[in-house]
Each structure stands twice: as structure tokens, then as C-alpha cells.
């Protein structure tokens, strides 16, 4: 089904939390997700300094205008040291698969030595 929201990018506030959440997901606030037409289980591209694709889960403890990304290699990939705990990102629904740790290691190695 064609979804209108698919072609739209939303500005989101992201908090990085040292949580016992699933580390390969983004936890959006249910209200924010609804506003953006994003559903639990969707894969979204989260773009800040770089971009990763994460599976969407919902959490009421997420900031109202965005989401939580657990402290993991995916959060690290998006951030720089100045915006380590909180940053703004652009979010859009994608058909692609979630990013893997291996992909990020490859990205690291590609610049190695």
C-alpha cells in the first residue's frame, strides 16, 4: 500500500539512553509516531551526522517530539562528541532492511590505517 508518509522526512529530537532496551531499535513516542504516520515495526532511516536504519518500537518515556535510541553502536554512529546524549535527527520510513553491526564495522574499517 502506498503510504503518504513514506516520502516525508520528520525532524525528531533524539535522546540517547543507557537503557536495557533492545539496542537495534528506535523508541518513538506514540504521539510523535502517530503524527508522522509511523507504525511499530516499521524500519526508519534516522539521519543525523550519518544515517542508520532502525526498527521502530514505541515508548511512552520517549521525548514527545521524537524518540530514544539506546546507547549502542547505532547511536554512536549518528553522533559526535558534542551531541552525545541529545541530538536532532531526520526520520523517514524506508523499505530497506535494518542496519547491522557488521555494516558499521565495515564503515570503520574502510577508513582504517
Amino acid at each position: 500500500m502506498l503510504r503518504l508518509t513514506k516520502f516525508m522526512k520528520f525532524e525528531a529530537e533524539i535522546v540517547v539512553a543507557r537503557d536495557s532496551f533492545d539496542s537495534s531499535a528506535i523508541y518513538l513516542h506514540p504521539e510523535f509516531a502517530k503524527k508522522c504516520g509511523i507504525k511499530e515495526g516499521d524500519v526508519v532511516s534516522v539521519e543525523a551526522k550519518r544515517a542508520v536504519k532502525l526498527k521502530v518500537k514505541l515508548s511512552n518515556s520517549a521525548p514527545e517530539n521524537g524518540g530514544i535510541i539506546p546507547n549502542s553502536i547505532f547511536a554512536s554512529f549518528l553522533t559526535d562528541f558534542e551531541n552525545f546524549k541529545r541530538f536532532k535527527a531526520r526520520i523517514e520510513v524506508t523499505d530497506e532492511k535494518e542496519s547491522t553491526i557488521e555494516e558499521i564495522i565495515e564503515a570503520l574499517k574502510s577508513n582504517e590505517k
Binding site: K49, R50, N71, S72, I73, S76, F77, L78, T79, D80, F81, F84, I104, I105, A107, L108, K109, N111, E112, K113
Partner: peptide
């Protein structure tokens, strides 16, 4: 550290 530090720092660590 590679999992928890910002990517630009990890990149230096890889070197």
C-alpha cells in the same frame, strides 16, 4: 568503546 563512543572517535581507534 567502539560500541559506545562517537563514530569519529572509533575511527581513530581503528587506526
Amino acid at each position: 568503546p567502539v560500541a559506545s563512543l562517537p563514530f569519529d572517535i572509533s575511527r581513530k581507534l581503528a587506526k
